[in-house]
Design a protein around this nucleic acid. Structure first.
Lengths: 111, 111
DNA sequence: CGTATATATGAGCATATGTTCATATATTGT
DNA sequence: ACAATATATGAACATATGCTCATATATACG
């Protein structure tokens, strides 16, 4: 019975007016999470860092597709990478956004 | 210093594989929150129920635009409405998704 | 019943989005 | 320097998205 409670009122109520910039940032953040491919990539990165090819093979996606999406996520600073030779290991870089994703996934599956 | 803590680990870690349906539901949910107009509408509905025209006038949007977006949000069960004569009063209908929105807004503004 | 008001709907249009293909760049090993 | 491997990039394309305009529906009121 406390299952529902713990995700409520974690924050003070939102404000009346949203300025342009806030609106842009918030919408961009959610846009990043609104595509199945990006969700799969971010969900995979929850398990730790992975190279571009690993991601592509694991999720059965084209190398170009993964690279494009990673650039998208990198621009929003949702992921970062570490270089090891010619291989780039990507990992998550925004725990807050990852938390939003986890909440949504949990809500979608556990209900 | 506990500012960052309270939004972390509200849930057990996400699972390894996401099925088609979960992927669809989650992406649709975030898509709903990825548009500035819909964000403004939902943010306004945080303050209680409002009619279509009230929303349009308050947010300076066309009546048709608001109606279309409300249909979109209604299909996803994020909003509901109550009829009073020829006026329809819309209000929020998914506290979990509203909570995701509030978190994102708070994060965008307080940082 | 006719008019006014509130909301919904569909077509059309411009723009955004995501994937694929081909190719470029970069790093490693020989 | 050359070949192999890993990743990035840009153009092209099909589809999705969001707004506007015109019009339809629905309710209330005289």
């Amino acid at each position: 019975m406390s299952e529902e409670k713990k995700e409520e009122n974690s924050f003070t109520d939102s404000q009346q007016h949203l300025d342009e910039e806030t609106l842009f940032v918030v919408s961009q953040t959610f846009k990043a999470l609104s595509d199945p491919t990006r969700i799969r990539i971010l969900n995979l990165l929850c398990t730790g860092e992975h190279s571009v090819n690993e991601i592509a093979e694991t999720l059965n996606l084209g190398q170009s597709t993964v690279s494009h999406q990673l650039r998208f996520l990198k621009n929003l600073r949702l992921v970062k990478y570490r270089r090891a030779g010619s291989t780039l290991f990507y990992s998550e870089d925004d725990h807050h956004v990852m938390n939003l994703l986890k909440q949504a996934i949990n809500h979608a599956t556990h209900h």
